[in-house]
Amino acid sequence: MSILIIILAIGAFLCLYRIYQGPSIADRAVGVDIMGILFVGITALSALFYDLSYLMDLSITLTLFSFIGTLALAKYLEKRSLDD
């Protein structure tokens, strides 16, 4: 059933194409955000296939860190300082 992980990896490569190609910085920020969520899915599926419970902890952490990173990028785009 590793074809599920392969499909998600193809999706992550499409995000990489958008990050490489994107006409503006905002497109690249969107690509990074979506790729983070796809990695959460890949980590959770790996936890299911290999029956490793700690990978699920990793996926919760990855969700929250991806959220914080996206907020930082959005603040940068809005031209405000990070402690505002």
Binding site: A29, D33, T63, F67, L71, A74, Y76, L77, E78
Partner: peptide
């Protein structure tokens, strides 16, 4: 909970950018 908030922040950021 986190994904719509992140999308909202990115959208406002790119509008102001």
């Amino acid at each position: 909970f986190t994904s719509p908030v992140a999308a909202h922040a990115l959208m406002k950021g790119s509008l102001h950018f």
